[in-house]
């Protein structure tokens, strides 16, 4: 889960495995613990889950997030996220 942070040029810890390098945090998504990239935005999380942001309702720590804020809103450690995804047809 989560894309790795780009390596910095000259980073002395390159011998450490990449997974140790990337800084992660834990959130709860739809009731399940999930490890994501530190400071990930709601939009990139939705895209990482292969979902279309326009078709997902997002509740973060009990508040509805508007789609216009998906790209700008970063998650923080311990965030409780509910994603409700819709499919077309009616």
């Amino acid at each position: 889960m989560g894309r790795l942070l780009p390596k910095r040029r000259g980073d002395l810890t390159l011998t450490v495995s990449e997974s140790k390098l990337s800084v992660t945090m834990n959130i709860v998504c739809n009731g399940k613990d999930m490890e994501v990239k530190d400071g990930v935005t709601i939009e990139s999380l939705i895209l990482d889950l292969d979902l279309n942001p326009a078709t997902v309702v997002v509740e973060c720590n009990g508040s509805i997030v508007l789609p216009d804020d998906y790209a700008g809103q970063q998650l923080s450690e311990g965030a409780v996220l509910e994603l409700i995804r819709f499919v077309g047809g009616g």
């Binding site: 279309n52 326009a54 078709t55 997902v56 409700i84 819709f86 499919v87 077309g88 047809g89 009616g90």
Partner: peptide, 8 residues
């Protein structure tokens, strides 16, 4: 609605 975005 028919469309998923409008459902959301």
């Amino acid at each position: 609605f028919d469309g998923a975005a409008m459902k959301a």
